[in-house]
Design a protein around this nucleic acid. Structure first.
Ligand SMILES: [Zn+2]
Length: 565
DNA sequence: CGCTTTTGACCTGCGC
DNA sequence: GCGCAGGTCAAAAGCG
């Protein structure tokens, strides 16, 4: 937990600024999306330079609006707010002119309008410095201060609430999205199957689709004997909810509560890795017999199962036995893995009763200072902010992997692949795809060593620059990728996995085009993707932003196989 | 006392 | 079918 303070310190700046004025606080939100500015590597410059009102009016991403609108509402609601707003406005207007020069200068330094997004960090000072008509202002300032303080209180609370809401919503949305995607894919598959089948047996059959639901109707009927048997096996400490699920057991022997709570069903991973078994032989499913429900059950089961398989693996140097990622874990097993002297430990999330999330921790065989943490599944409960990074990462990545593996084996069309390549133009060799394996896995390599096979320093990759920071906690990084994945997925997946028809050009990622296929270049240069990266990275950077270069490498590799050390 | 870790047994999928 | 390897279970032990 201690380590997590760091990662999430990016909330702090928000609060600090909050103490200045609501406006400033709001702009902080925007700050989260200022990443494009930093692409030029001029983080420091931008911070030092004073922002202007004009800058703040440039909205980089829509996501910001969520907060902004909320804030605005907040402002309007209070009486004196308007006064404050006016004040700040006036001040800003004043300063605007001088700032413009700065902008021009900077823009020559770096690049285009990206600079417009620069920080407002100095705004407080500016307000102080600017004190023009001192006397008048002072009086006002005093009263304003009082108001501001109150306002600040309110806003802080509101902020807190919003944060909580956001995290929760994000969580929910992630899982919902995951499910939706899976269902969509399933439907596609089913359509495919149905059509082919009906073609084959067109003469004999009336309706092919009927077949599927029927299976589930059968499955839906839990046998009374089984349940009673299973009750015996329930552990003393286990919640009664375990019983509910026991009907999904297939073998009488070990009726362990794998899917521990009813929640799990709706959430992800109700079914263990044996999807096919669940589908065909017996058990499980909703008791109801309507064909629709059955179909849904299939979809869900398959989706969950697939989801389950999707993994996010993080390689990081750490002497600690485990990365602290904000979640509570309970060790449930340990095994000697083949070809590795170090044992592999198995953990499961204990923050909620039925949470299906698991993780494996193992040291790298070649370099024992490298810790390999592999996550599976999605949390079925609200997460503390400290845990959001990992969670969103796994969810998003899992979704990505899902869509990629199911819809096409084509590595080029695999969004995950694309992402990996897009993020790692210099180390595209790392993005190996072996179509042969059961577990689609995305691997984040945060280790120091350049891994030999990656001679190019990744310094020209924007993402690298951000990862290569001293205070950078490996545990946070997943959020970067996670969010990137997340946003990217909305682009690439929901638009039907089709590559953007119109490749757009973004200087920052243009290098991708050289080393990567045209397809991946298209995605990578997609402004939305860039923006997603920006959002994700900026949010991280804002928190643990200390300029320094560490020799950290961030490699993202995807494979359909087990992660080999 | 409640929770976590340890650890041997067990289950499952896969290749031969 | 057999053996192997990965993954999981749960009783027992450990810990605060
Ligand atoms: Zn959880």
């Amino acid at each position: 937990m201690q380590q997590n303070h760091h990662p999430y310190s990016y909330f702090k700046p928000k609060h600090n600024l909050t103490s200045l004025s609501p406006d400033l606080r709001i702009s902080t939100e925007r700050e989260m999306f200022r990443f494009p500015v930093s692409l030029g590597g001029s983080c420091d410059n931008t911070k030092q330079s004073q922002p202007s009102d004009e800058q703040q009016h440039r909205v980089v991403m829509d996501e910001v609006d969520f907060f902004r609108s909320a804030e605005k509402r907040d402002r309007v609601s209070s009486d004196e707010q308007n006064v404050i707003a006016d004040e700040t406005h006036r001040v800003h207007v004043k300063r605007e002119n001088p700032r413009v020069d700065d902008h021009d200068n900077r823009s020559t330094d770096i690049n285009i309008g990206l600079n417009l997004l620069t920080a407002n960090t100095g705004s407080d000072e500016s307000m102080v410095d600017d004190g023009l008509s001192v006397d008048m202002e002072e009086k006002r300032t005093k009263s304003e201060n009082a108001q501001l303080k109150e306002e600040l209180k309110k806003v802080s609370e509101e902020n807190q609430r919003l944060k909580e809401m956001l995290s929760q919503t994000t969580n929910d949305f992630n899982s919902l999205q995951m499910q939706l995607v899976s269902v969509m894919r399933q439907q596609e598959d089913h359509h495919h199957l149905a059509t082919t089948e009906s073609k084959d047996k067109a003469n004999q059959r009336h309706e092919a689709p009927e077949i599927v639901p029927r299976q589930f109707i059968d499955l839906g009927l839990p046998s009374a004997d089984v349940t009673s048997e299973e009750r015996n096996t329930v552990r003393s400490g286990s919640p009664p909810s375990l019983l509910e699920n026991s009907n999904s057991r297939q073998n009488g022997k070990r009726l362990l509560a794998r899917e521990e709570s009813p929640d799990t069903e709706s959430n992800g991973w109700g079914s263990p890795n044996k999807i096919p078994k669940h589908l065909h032989p017996s058990s499980s499913g909703n008791g109801d017999g309507s064909s629709n429900i059955g179909a849904n059950a299939i979809d869900r089961a398959a989706a969950e199962a697939t989801m389950r398989k999707a993994r996010v693996s993080v390689r990081a140097r750490s002497e600690a036995p485990m990365l602290s990622d904000g979640c509570q874990w309970r060790k449930y097993g340990q095994k000697m893995a083949k070809g590795n002297p170090c044992p592999r430990a198995y953990y499961r999330c204990t923050m909620a009763v039925g949470c299906p999330v698991r993780k494996q921790v193992q040291r790298c065989a070649e370099d024992r200072s490298i810790l390999i943490t592999t996550y599976e599944g999605n949390h079925n409960h609200p997460l503390p902010p400290a845990a959001m990074s990992m969670a969103s990462t796994t969810t998003a990545a899992a979704s990505m992997l899902l869509s990629g593996s199911m819809s096409s084996q084509d590595s080029l069309l695999n969004p995950t692949n694309l992402l990996a390549r897009a993020m790692l133009p210099c180390s595209s060799s790392m993005a190996t795809i072996s179509a042969s394996a059961p577990f689609p896995t995305i691997t984040l390599d945060l280790t120091n060593s350049s891994n030999g096979n990656n001679p190019n320093m990744n310094t020209n990759n924007p993402l690298m620059q951000f990862v290569q920071r001293p205070g950078f906690n490996p545990a946070v990084l997943p959020q970067v990728v996670g969010q990137a994945l997340y946003y990217n997925q909305q682009q690439s997946k929901f638009s039907g996995l089709q590559l953007p028809a119109q490749p757009l050009q973004i200087p920052a990622t243009s290098s991708v085009a050289e080393s990567v296929s045209a397809a991946s270049a298209a995605i990578a240069s997609d402004p939305n993707f860039a923006a997603a990266l920006a959002a994700a990275i900026t949010s991280i950077i804002n928190g643990s932003n200390h300029q320094n270069n560490n020799s950290n490498n961030n490699n993202v590799a995807t494979s359909n196989g087990d992660n080999r050390q």
